[in-house]
């Protein structure tokens, strides 16, 4: 079933006339017998940073993992930048997408993980150059120049030759952000990127992400418990509960005057 109707576009306040960068169309995801996402619809316009909030277990991280193709949906379809991420046409029929079909679309998406997941078998610089060289076919010298620029940006120019294991958590996460940006993604997924950090290291990472958010080169999709950060960087906030969007809107609205009781309860609980 091809996702052709424009119902979701009309429903989102950010739709406008340009086609959305990301669109979820009646996406279903189950783990065992538990339905985590229940026919979820939502879309994100290019250049509009989005934050997903909601109680744990509401399916926020699942959305990011679906977008990154780390898991597959059990129903519905996902479109990224006009390409169907979940389905492809084979012999005139719409079938689940295979690895080959997904690969070019996946390149438009980057992800930063809660646990950083730097490659310990590579020094910091190699972490940043390996994918551009191997995946984008970039020249190694060129990739290194770009990697050093990114390290400069995240304030770790002097760590290019360090082992990842020798960096602090905050430094590792900044390297991980630089690594994701090195692929020049259109969408950057941030999965609770500060949750594993010691409190005193959080601010540095968030400051960096604020800078990236205002630069406008990449659309951020964040899952976070840092409400202050969410308010600063996002153009749109989606409140999730039980696999559905309870309400969405600009941060000023959601954080100061939410429509739903669930949202009010949640915001009171996290503050």
């Amino acid at each position: 079933m091809a996702p052709t109707d424009s119902a979701t576009e009309e429903r989102t306040p950010t739709g406008g006339t340009t086609p959305p960068l990301i669109r979820f169309d009646r996406v279903v995801k189950r783990f065992g017998g538990v339905t985590v996402l229940d026919e979820l619809d939502f879309s994100v316009a290019a250049g509009r940073n989005v934050t997903l909030i909601g109680p744990s277990g509401s399916g926020k991280t699942t959305i990011l993992r679906l977008l990154m193709t780390l898991i597959r949906p059990d129903g519905g379809s996902i479109t990224v930048d006009g390409d169907n991420l979940t389905h492809m046409v084979r012999r005139g029929k719409l079938v689940p997408a295979d690895e080959k079909h997904v690969r070019p679309i996946r390149k438009k998406i980057g992800m930063v993980f809660q646990q950083f997941n730097l490659f310990p078998n590579m020094r910091v610089l190699r972490n940043l150059t390996e994918a551009p060289v191997r995946v984008l076919g970039m020249d190694r010298d060129e990739a290194e120049i770009r990697a050093r620029e990114l390290l400069e940006m995240v304030g770790l120019a002097d760590k290019a030759d360090a082992h990842c294991a020798h960096l602090s958590g905050g430094q590792q996460q900044r390297v991980a952000i630089a690594r994701a940006l090195a692929m020049r993604p259109k969408v950057l997924l941030l999965d609770e990127v500060t949750s594993a950090l010691d409190p005193e290291l959080v601010a540095g990472v968030l400051d960096l992400l604020r800078d990236i958010a205002v630069s406008g080169d990449v659309t951020l999709v964040c899952v976070t418990h840092e409400m202050g950060f969410a308010r600063d960087v996002s153009d749109q906030v989606l409140m999730f509960d039980a696999g559905r969007v309870v309400e969405s809107g600009p941060p000023e609205k959601i954080f100061s005057d939410p429509d739903h009781q669930r949202t009010r309860d949640f915001l009171r609980a996290v503050r």
């Binding site: 980057g110 992800m111 993980f113």
Partner: peptide
């Protein structure tokens, strides 16, 4: 997480194995 990070960087399955998983 290592495999997921490698997927997120669009490495092919073979590259994930050769560049990330096996060296560790």
């Amino acid at each position: 997480g290592q495999r997921e990070a490698a997927t997120a960087l669009s490495f092919t399955p073979w590259q994930r194995l050769r560049l990330v998983v096996l060296p560790q």
